[in-house]
Structures are given as C-alpha cells and as structure tokens.
Amino acid sequence: MEAPVNSERASRKDDHVRLAHEQRGDAPGANAFDDVEFVHHALAGVDASRVDLAVRVGEWRWSTPFYANGMTGGTEWTTRINRELAIAARETGMPMACGSVSVALDHPEAARGFAVIREENPTGFVMANLGVGRSADDAVRAVELLHADALQLHLNAVQETAMPEGTRDFSCWEASVERVVAASPVPVIVKEVGFGLSRRTLLRLSELGVRIADVSGAGGTDFLRIENARHDSDARRSGHDFSMLSGFGQSALACLLDAPEGGPALLASGGVRNPFDVVKALAAGAGAVGVAGSFLEALLDGGAETLVPLIERWVAQTTAILALLGAAAPAELTSTDLLVRGRLAEFCRLRGIDLTALATRSGP
C-alpha cells in the first residue's frame, strides 16, 4: 500500500524548501559569477529606451530574459508557494516552472499543489517538471496536469547519490531521456539540478533529440548539502555521509563557456543572485536565465506582494545594464568583451577555452 503524500515524501518536499532557505543565509556570498568582468567601453552605451529584453527560446518568445525556475509543490505549504509564484508570474509576464510533479502522479491528492499554478496564471508560460527515469506516459500526464507549454526533465545523479533512498542505477537514464523527448506533446528542456551539464553531456543530449538544455550549475541551491543535512540525525545515515563531495560539479558559467557548437540551445541557472548575474550568463551564451533562490526568499518573506516589485526592479536594472554595455537586446551581449579570472579561468584553460578571444570579442 502506498504511503500517504503527507508522510515521508511530503516531509522531504517541505525539508527541501526549508533547508534551501536556511542555507542561503550561511552560504558564501561569492561564486563563479564573480570571476567574470566586462571590459568597460565608455562610449559604447545605447539609449535605454531602445533596449528590448525579449528573448527567443526555441519556438517561444519570452518578454523577460529570466524566468522562475522549478522550486516545489505537492504539500499544503508548497501549494501556497506555487500559488504566490504563479500570481507574480501572471502580473509580470515572467515565465515560470514548477517543482517535480512526480509526487502528484503517484499521489493524486497532491495534484492540487500544481494545478493551482494554472488557476492563477491561465495564459502565462508554464513549464512542468519531471525527474528522468519516469515513463513516457508520466511525461504526458505531467504536461496535462499543468496544461504546460514545456516540460523540464531533470537529471539529479548527485542528489540521488546523497539520498539514502535514492537510486543507484543511472544506466537507464539515456533511454529515458529519448523516450520522454519522443512522447512529450510539448518541447522538453533537460536540466541539471545544480551540478552542471558538461560539453560531453550536451553533445549526447543533442544526439538523443534534446533541443534545449538548462546547464543549471553549482553555486546556488545545493542539493548535495540539503540531502546531507536532511539525514544528519537519521539512523539510516550511518556510513552514508557524502559531504566529501562538497563543491562537486561545474558552475553555470563554466558550462556555458565550455558548451559545444551544434549542441542544444542553452538556458542557465544556478547561483544567480541579481540582474548583473543574469547579464553575465546571457553574455556567456545563455538564451535566458533561471532564478530560484532569490525569488523563493522574496516569496517566503511576503508572497507575491514582495516578489512582484522585485521582478520589476530586475527588469529595470537589467535594461539599464544592457544600455550601459551597448546592447539593445540580450542577444547582442555575446559580442561584449569578457574577462575571466580565478577558478573559472583555470577551468577554461584546462578545457582549452581561448580566454583572449573572449576578452576581445568586440574588436581591437
């Protein structure tokens, strides 16, 4: 007999949100975004009134170059979070994703925690979210539950490794990706959950039919750390501490700079703290940028009433930064000159990435 959704599985959903919020308070302020600088050209700026933040992602046009990435859903508390997030997305026109809907597919009583998104945001751009390894039929059900415009399919091998109850068999994941891509009635966006998609992985995803990928790198919500914290006092945890993997994976910027030609169109998330980070990711090759932690913090502080003004500030500040850099549209940022320093520069050198070319993209 299946456990009710309000037992261990529901506790895990709430723990993820609670621990992510708590760990933001004591996480180091610096991340790979601080290793990237723009060369300032004092006469290159444009009129901010000419800047259009709209971006093309696959077949879609989004009015903002950032979106709310998948967070949660399925319990009473997380239903309230999804409701407020959907209201904020509706009021600002920002695309949004939900957290994994697997719990609702297995426990129909949890579906309310996701259906509320469409109730509050009936015409906005919404992405459903499902873990790799689920069936093609589950992918179709996930899309139908939210009347979704796209399906995020997440890869979370590091998180599964840190979970005592997690899977240890990743051998079927490639076949699962291929089946879901073929069966989904909407485009599939394959994403990591905070450990990055390597050049090799992106090439393989392209071979499996994936056209859009979110590199979702390290530096933001850390599910390895969350799973370690969630089970610290659990008897099952004996001999199951994976804190030695702290820092595992690549940052979003590392993944973007290392991405192959001919791979999927790229989205980026992981450690995005402010509009300047958004602009850096766009300049490094992202078509749009996912945000979770900063928006979740605003939601927990004051719901949509707090998040809406924050999103509006991000729009205004992103517009101003593009004008400063001489970019009338996000796509033009890929011609700006980037200086890469620190650990990110070391990664680039080891991977054969030409840092001088990045620093002189606009010409002499």
Rank of each mutant, 00 (worst) to 15 (best):
L19C: 05
R61P: 04
S176R: 05
C98D: 02
W173R: 02
L253K: 09
G262E: 11
F125P: 12
L85I: 04
P187E: 11
L202C: 06
Q317P: 03
F195V: 14
L153T: 00
P65Q: 12
L257D: 10
R273I: 13
A213S: 12
G220E: 08
A254M: 06
G29I: 05
L338F: 06
L43I: 08
V315E: 13
H16S: 10
R211Y: 03
V180G: 12
W314I: 08
G45M: 02
D337P: 08
I321L: 13
R141P: 03
H16M: 11
L324E: 04
L300Q: 14
P364H: 12
K191R: 07
P108G: 01
L355W: 04
E8N: 08
A182D: 03
I87F: 05
G124F: 07
L253W: 11
I353P: 02
E261L: 15
D337M: 13
A115T: 15
P95E: 12
V46M: 03
L256R: 14
E119Y: 10
A175H: 05
G29Y: 02
G220C: 07
H16D: 10
R168P: 00
A288T: 13
E2Q: 14
P187S: 11
L324T: 09
G290A: 13
V177A: 10
W62C: 08
H154T: 04
L130D: 10
A54F: 02
M71N: 01
I321F: 00
E207Q: 15
A162K: 06
R237K: 12
H41S: 15
F170G: 08
P275K: 10
E22F: 03
A115F: 06
S11Q: 13
T334V: 11
E227Q: 08
A218T: 14
G133V: 08
E22R: 13
Q159P: 08
L325Q: 02
A115G: 15
L257C: 12
C172H: 06
A110M: 03
H154V: 10
G70M: 05
E178H: 12
N31Q: 06
D34Y: 01
